[in-house]
């Protein structure tokens, strides 16, 4: 089975959970490849500026010098090359060359690991579909900052893995896992636990799809809403809730 991971910013894509996932897939004999968008230095510099403003250079240095983030082997792309895993670099997923790369890789399945929005032309290529790990419990929390919005509303937090459709987080769900909020948790700690859960769930989903035992559940979209990036003031309320011991105790309405 050939699986392609789609990610972005190859020079700084160093999150440990992605390498854990890739290693696990290789260990199980999966034929793996990586396809990156926003691969140029200019793309990455622009993205860093847009995200962090003039603080971007300092944050980049800090991120690359933090062992938990960078790991002993640096970026996922560098690690993949050392493993002999094909890595394809592109400016944008919508570029014709990106579609040609994807066709040439002929994947059975695509996994999104922090990717840009994937155009329909790319979604049509993998034989078995495209999976995305979403840091929120579907169908209730679609879109951005789903963990934060769940905490704001006293709802459970967790990760859902779903097939990708042209809508935002609207595809059939193949796996989900709730994540317990522990005393002392902050958003960064929770994010790391979400990432590890995402790696586990994607790995399991690939296995069940390969075995033909996957069960995909259609979402009732009327039970959820699209969420957007949180304003810092609202996010501050979430951080205060966490500091005060939020537990996500209220049951999801699903």
């Amino acid at each position: 089975m050939r699986v392609v991971l789609i990610s972005r910013y190859p020079r700084v894509d160093a999150a440990g959970w992605k390498r854990e996932l890739a290693q696990s897939l290789l260990d199980r004999g999966i034929d793996l490849a990586l396809l990156y968008s926003r691969s140029s230095m200019a793309d990455q510099a622009r993205a860093g500026l847009k995200e962090f403003g003039l603080d971007a250079p300092r944050r980049l240095i800090a991120a690359r010098s933090t062992p938990a983030q960078a790991g002993p082997t640096g970026s996922l792309a560098a690690w993949a090359r050392r493993q002999g895993v094909p890595v394809r670099l592109h400016r944008r997923l919508g570029d014709r060359e990106a579609a040609e790369s994807m066709r040439a890789l002929a994947p059975d399945l695509v996994l999104l690991t922090g990717a840009d929005i994937v155009p329909a032309t790319l979604l049509a290529i993998p034989r078995l579909g495209t999976l995305n790990p979403h840091y929120g419990l579907l169908p209730r929390y679609r879109g951005m900052n789903a963990t934060e919005w769940s905490i704001y509303n006293d709802d459970p937090v967790g990760v859902s893995v779903h097939f990708v459709t042209p809508g935002i987080d609207t595809g059939d769900v193949v796996a989900e896992e709730r994540i317990e909020i522990l005393p002392g948790d902050d958003l960064e700690r929770l994010r790391l636990r979400h990432q590890r859960a995402a790696a586990r769930l994607l790995d399991g989903a690939v296995e069940s799809i390969a075995a033909g035992t996957v069960s995909a559940v259609a979402q009732d979209l009327s039970k959820g809403r699209q969420h957007y990036r949180m304003h810092p003031v609202v996010r501050g309320r979430v951080e205060a809730k966490l500091a005060a011991g939020a537990s996500g105790a209220r049951d999801s309405s699903r």
């Binding site: 509303n153 957007y228 949180m230 609202v234």
Partner: peptide, 13 residues
Amino acid sequence: DARLLNAGLKAVD
């Protein structure tokens, strides 16, 4: 609906 608070803050800011 706090999503509306979020959007309102962004637009006003």
